[in-house]
Structure formats: structure tokens, C-alpha cells
Simulated scan of single mutants.
Amino acid sequence: MNSNSYSPGLHKLVTLQVDNIQKLTDSKGYIAVTNKILNRYGLEQVGVIVHDFDNSSFTISVCLKESHICIHTWPEFNQLTLDVYLCNYLQDNTQKVKDVTEQYISYFEGIVLKDFEINR
């Protein structure tokens, strides 16, 4: 990738409707599936912050060597927001961002309410 064609990366932001409330309140399950996704796609975690709220919803930020994955759940509304960004420093990660996002949609059996792609 030369400097004339360099693009910092794809940033996907999705909002999902999720009928399975248990998945919106299971932060440990989310961490387990995230670890599988990171291994599958060769992504390197450098830190993680988990916050479980009183209603069992959660916010989790996974800092990656390649950038980040963040989630916020609202079981009271059957929704979550997911943020996946991988930078393109050494390779084009555009398809990987799309594939990782699809893995989460599949895990949550989510219906996409909003889907934004930002080419940074």
C-alpha cells in the first residue's frame, strides 16, 4: 500500500434489534465470542474494559492493536449498538471489518436497524 492510495480504514457502526434478551445481558458470553472472533481473524487485543449496569445491560470496549470494537446494550429496548474499526496500517482490512461485524450480527441473531460505514 503506497502513500497515494492509503486509506486509514473502515469504521462500521450498526444498531441491532435483538429478541434474545439474555444475549443483551450476558457480558461474559460477549467476551467469549469476541475472543473467538479475534482469534479467527488474527486480531490482537491490547486491553478490555467491561461495565455491567444494574439492569444487566453492558458496555464493553476492546482495544485492539488494529484499533477497537465497542458495544452498548439496551435490553429494555431489545437493542444494541456496535462499533468496529480496524485501521489499514499494514494491509487493507475493509473486508475483515465487514466480516467481523457479520459475526456479531449472527451471534446476536440481530436485525439491522442502522448500518453506517465510514471510510476514514
Rank of each mutant, 00 (worst) to 15 (best):
N20D: 07
C87I: 08
E76C: 13
K96M: 02
S67T: 10
I111L: 06
I111H: 06
Q17N: 11
L43A: 09
K98P: 00
T73M: 10
N2L: 10
V84F: 02
I105N: 07
I105K: 05
T25Q: 07
V14E: 02
K12I: 06
S61W: 13
I21A: 10
N20E: 03
I111W: 09
K114W: 10
L43R: 03
Y41C: 07
R40G: 02
H72S: 12
V100C: 04
D83I: 08
F116Q: 11
L38Q: 01
E117A: 09
Q91W: 00
I31W: 09
K23P: 04
V62N: 12
I60N: 14
S57V: 15
G42K: 01
K65L: 12
F77A: 14
L64C: 09
G47K: 10
S56D: 12
H11S: 00
I37H: 00
N78G: 12
N35I: 03
N55H: 15
E44L: 09
F53Q: 15
R120K: 03
V14P: 05
H72A: 01
Q95V: 08
L10T: 01
V112F: 01
S106Q: 12
P75A: 10
K98A: 01
K23W: 05
L43G: 11
Q45K: 14
V112S: 12
V18S: 08
V97C: 03
G42R: 04
N78L: 10
H51R: 14
I37N: 06
N39E: 00
V48P: 05
E76T: 15
W74K: 15
Q79K: 14
D92K: 02
L86P: 03
L64S: 02
L82W: 03
E109V: 09
T15Q: 06
V48R: 12
V33F: 00
K96H: 00
K96G: 06
N55E: 15
D26H: 03
K12E: 09
N55Y: 13
V46Q: 06
D92W: 06
N55V: 10
D26F: 01
K36N: 05
N119G: 03
Q79C: 14
V18D: 11
Y104W: 03
I60V: 07
V14G: 08
I105D: 05
I60T: 12
S56A: 10
I49E: 15
G9T: 00
V84M: 05
T15H: 12
V62M: 08
D52P: 09
C87R: 04
L43T: 07
I60K: 09
H72Q: 15
S67N: 09
W74D: 13
D99C: 01
F116M: 15
M1R: 07
N35M: 02
M1W: 03
R40N: 07
L10S: 05
Q22L: 08
A32Y: 11
Y30G: 05
D83H: 06
V48C: 12
V46F: 10
E109I: 04
T73Y: 02
E117M: 08
C70L: 04
V50H: 13
V112Y: 11
S67G: 08
D52R: 14
N55L: 13
T59H: 11
L90M: 11
Q79R: 11
G9E: 04
L113P: 14
V84E: 00
W74V: 13
E117G: 07
M1V: 04
S61R: 14
E44M: 14
L64I: 08
I31T: 01
H68I: 13
S106M: 06
D52C: 13
D19E: 15
K96P: 02
